[in-house]
């Protein structure tokens, strides 16, 4: 493996309490088998000194307690674990989630814009988005916000020029070759296609987040009544 002619994996400085392990230089689904395996190794290697693990597309940020472990000792543990790292193929199986989604211009006000950009009909955009299975590459931006990919190239559209001040909770959105669903109402610049009835982040649920890194996700197109019967909120997006 190499990035900019440099050997990977590489352990990079990330402040007094962290090391960033760079395992890959490109986004690939298989990356996950290695990143998950390393995360598990870190749990064993650091024990009580482990504060947080932040997996992302190509990296794992390892945060430890510098009162218990010097950065140098932490680095040595990582070197040791990386030397004998074996991919965790099971991680690639991931949990599969089906998110019931109502695709409609009232809750997905960017459907027409995306269709125009892609040279497709709105129905074709919906079919295309709902027919793929996506992988969760990373969580971030907000609790339970899962960055999923890869979206079909046909639907690749840039972010909105001006982000919305408030994207309603459960909005299903796309940008670039990624898709996501908003676990909470937040500002956001992604293109809205519809809304899911799933509960994405729940503080009462074991594990809190419905979607985790490595999971696979399908958006299942449902009609308005089915969406509403599953508890979906049919209030149109207010872009004023």
């Amino acid at each position: 493996m190499s990035a900019n002619g440099q050997h990977l994996p590489r352990i990079e400085a990330a402040g007094l309490d962290g090391w960033l392990v760079r395992l890959f230089d490109r986004i690939e689904e298989d990356n996950l088998a290695w990143i998950s395996a390393l995360a598990r190794e870190c749990e064993m290697a650091f024990g009580a000194a482990l504060i947080d693990l932040v997996p992302s597309y190509t990296t794992l940020l390892v945060v430890f307690d510098p009162m218990q472990l010097t950065p140098l000792a932490a680095r040595e543990r990582l070197v040791e674990r990386l030397r004998q790292l074996q991919p965790d193929e099971a991680a690639l199986a991931g949990e599969v989630h089906e998110l019931p989604t109502w695709y409609d211009t009232s809750v997905g006000p960017d459907l027409e814009r995306v269709a125009e950009h892609a040279g497709l009909s709105v129905e074709q955009v919906i079919d295309c988005h709902a027919s793929a299975t996506y992988r969760v590459f990373a969580l971030g931006f907000a609790p339970g916000f899962a960055f999923m990919g890869l979206l079909d190239e046909k639907l690749e559209v840039p972010r909105l020029d001006t982000p919305r001040k408030r994207v309603p909770v459960n909005s299903v959105a796309i940008t670039g070759r990624q898709t996501a669903a908003y676990p909470a109402a937040t500002p956001g610049g992604w293109n809205l296609l519809g809304r899911t009835a799933a509960t994405l982040f729940d503080r009462e649920r074991e594990g809190f987040s419905l979607l985790n890194v490595g999971d696979r996700v399908c958006f299942v197109s449902v009609d308005r009544d089915t969406f509403a019967s599953k508890g979906g909120d049919t209030t149109p997006v207010d872009d004023t």
Binding site: G18, V54, P55, S56, Y57, T58, F147
Partner: peptide
Amino acid sequence: MISEGIGLGA
């Protein structure tokens, strides 16, 4: 860059 974990004070 591809998004990655960021620590306090970065």
